[in-house]
Every structure is written in structure tokens, then in C-alpha cells.
């Protein structure tokens, strides 16, 4: 077993054991923190496909996170108010069912990623960053002005949504659900990166000219990667909204796009468990340093600077070394 495999296994074991320990010692807040870390890891795992494998520096992933959040918010808002979502040409009711909400979050985020990707992938480098950022701002201000759904104030959802067979109000059960989704996405990512698609996308990031020369269109590969990436981050948004039982335009903010990127860079760009390492570290720092000082972001900034300057593989690279070549 490589060092990276051991590191990943240790992380996963930690995510399994810490909440159980918290449950036994009756520390529900720790479970909430862990849930937050897992959901952020999921959002970052989405970005890691576009950024890590495809090299797409998207500063607009909050768009998908926000769409996921509002998918949850809007459906649950109508369900709790007993008002239909629309009445013409056919009636659509709101819902409190998580699987339905997740499906909608995934589909709408994927569609948004398709449109944004089609327009922004014509550019590269700084222009790509700027266009994704611009889309993020468009969605942000749209959400602020969308008064039917709370506008600037956002929406509160009074009771967490339902999942068949679970009591999602119990923190540990909701946590288990989120962790299970994270594991599913990580397994999918692990397969994806070794599948023909991942191999091609990885090469598209490194040498687009080679890809064309062997008969592949790098643009289409990157577009599909962007769509998959957006869909996963959208799912994370729906969970995040359910965790807080609250959605607001800040989910669309460019600061949040930056935060997802920080998670990926902190954990190790392109590393399978990089988003997990990044999110766990981020939430831990936020909790520990945030308790000491209001200005904890200064220290986060210093740590990030250290990672970028001295540990290009992020925390994963620091602990597990260079990525093992797979054969």
C-alpha cells in the first residue's frame, strides 16, 4: 500500500470515528462541524475534477453550490407553505424529499455548468477565471433581487428535509447520509481518473496539442468535466442548505467560490482525497483559530501561503509524498 492510500484510509477512518466518539460523549456540535467538513469536501471534490484533472481554474463554482442550495430552498419553501411551485401548464408541488431535491440540484447545476462552460471554455487563463467569476456575480445579484425567495435575506426552512428510512433531524444520521454521498463521489472520482475519460482529460490539461493529434477534442472533454464538476458541487449545495436549514445569496458569492478553491489547494490539487484533507483542515482551523481570534483568516492566509510556496501537493503531498504512478 502506498503512503497516499494509507493517508486516505486514515482520513476516512477519522471521518467515521470522530462523530461516533462525539455521539458517545454527547458532543452534538462536533457532529455538526464534521458534517460541515464533509459537505465542503463534497463541494471541493466537485471542483477538483475540473481544477485538479482538467486544469480549469473556475472562480465561479459557488454558482453550482448556490443552485443546489436554492433547489432545496425553493422546493422546501413551497412544501412548508403548502403552495404549489407552479400551476400552469401543470401543477408542480414543493417537496421535502431529499432524493428529489438532490436530483433537481444535480440536473439544474449540470445544465448551468453546460451553458457557462460552453461560453467560458472558449477562453483560457485569466480570461477563463474572469468569465466564471462574472457568472458567479450574475447569479449572486439575481438571488439578491429574487424577492419571491427571500431576496437578500434568504429563506429559512424550519424542518430538515426527509430521507426514506432515516430520521434526518438526528445529527448523526444526517452526517452518515452526507458521508455516504461523499464516499460515492470519491469512488466515482477514483474510477473516473483512471478511466479513458480521466486519462484523456488529464492529458488535455498537460498537452492539448497532443490530444488533438490523437483524434480527441480537448474542448469537449473539458466541457463534460465542467458539467460533472458543477453537478457534484450542486449536490453539496443542497446538503449545505439542509445542514443550516437556511439558504441565502452568500452561497453564490465569489468569496465562497474562492473558499472552495482554497480547500482544493490546501488539500492538494488533483489528489483524490485532497478536498477531504482541505475541508477537514479548514473546518478545524475555522473552529480552533476562530475561537481565539476574530481575525483567524490571517492565519489561514499564512498557512495557504506556506502550502503554495513550499508544498505544491498541499497537505496530501506533504504527508503522502508525490503521487504514485498507476500501472
Amino acid at each position: 500500500m502506498s503512503r497516499e492510500t494509507l493517508f486516505n484510509a486514515a482520513l476516512l477512518l477519522g471521518l467515521l470515528l470522530v462523530p461516533i466518539w462525539a455521539l458517545l460523549t454527547d458532543e452534538p456540535f462536533t457532529i455538526t462541524l464534521a458534517t460541515r467538513a464533509v459537505i465542503l469536501a463534497l463541494a471541493a471534490a466537485g471542483l477538483n475534477i475540473a481544477l485538479g484533472i482538467g486544469g480549469l481554474v473556475s472562480l465561479g463554482h459557488a454558482v453550482f453550490f448556490g443552485i443546489g442550495g436554492y433547489a432545496m430552498g425553493i422546493l422546501a419553501h413551497h412544501a412548508q407553505g403548502f403552495t404549489p411551485l407552479m400551476e400552469w401548464p401543470f401543477v408542480i408541488e414543493g417537496t421535502k424529499s431529499m432524493p428529489v431535491i438532490w436530483l433537481l440540484a444535480i440536473v439544474v447545476s449540470a445544465l448551468a455548468a453546460l451553458v457557462i462552460g460552453l461560453l467560458s471554455l472558449r477562453t483560457t487563463g485569466a480570461y477563463f477565471i474572469m468569465i466564471t467569476l462574472a457568472f458567479g456575480q450574475m447569479f449572486y445579484y439575481f438571488a439578491i433581487s429574487w424577492s419571491a425567495y427571500g431576496g437578500e435575506d434568504g429563506m429559512s426552512i424550519y424542518v430538515r428535509n426527509d430521507f426514506p428510512g432515516l430520521n434526518t433531524l438526528a445529527p448523526i444520521q444526517f452526517y452518515g447520509l452526507c458521508l455516504a454521498l461523499l464516499v460515492v463521489v470519491l469512488v466515482f472520482s477514483a474510477r473516473l481518473r483512471r478511466a479513458p475519460f480521466g486519462l484523456s482529460l488529464n492529458a488535455a490539461r498537460q498537452v492539448p496539442a497532443r490530444l488533438e493529434a490523437v483524434g480527441l477534442d480537448p474542448m469537449r472533454l473539458k466541457l463534460v468535466a465542467f458539467v460533472i464538476s458543477g453537478a457534484i458541487t450542486g449536490l453539496a449545495g443542497a446538503l449545505f442548505a439542509d445542514l443550516n436549514r437556511f439558504v441565502s445569496p452568500t452561497m453564490f458569492s465569489w468569496q465562497f467560490s474562492g473558499e472552495i478553491m482554497v480547500l482544493v489547494i490546501l488539500g492538494g490539487v488533483g489528489r483524490l482525497f485532497g478536498p477531504v484533507a482541505g475541508a477537514v483542515t479548514f473546518v478545524a482551523l475555522e473552529h480552533v483559530l476562530g475561537g481565539l481570534t476574530e481575525f483567524w483568516h490571517i492565519y489561514l492566509g499564512l498557512i495557504l501561503l506556506g502550502v503554495v510556496l513550499f508544498a505544491r501537493g498541499g497537505i496530501t503531498g506533504l504527508i503522502a509524498g508525490r503521487e504514485a504512478s498507476h500501472d
Binding site: 474510477r191 483512471r194 475519460f197 486519462l199 488529464n202 490530444l211 483524434g215
Partner: peptide, 27 residues
């Protein structure tokens, strides 16, 4: 960053227009 074999497999799958597989290992 990729291995010699991965580079060669890339050529093989590219020419056959088969990058759209997301699960089974390329190698």
C-alpha cells in the same frame, strides 16, 4: 506527468474515439 504506457494508451483510445468511458480502467 503520466507514464509511458498511459501516453501510448491515450493514442490508442483517441484514434478509436473512445474517451467517453467514466468507470472502467483505461489501462
Amino acid at each position: 506527468e503520466d507514464t509511458v504506457l498511459e501516453n501510448a494508451v491515450l493514442g490508442a483510445l483517441g484514434a478509436r474515439g473512445r474517451p467517453w468511458r467514466f468507470w472502467a480502467s483505461a489501462l
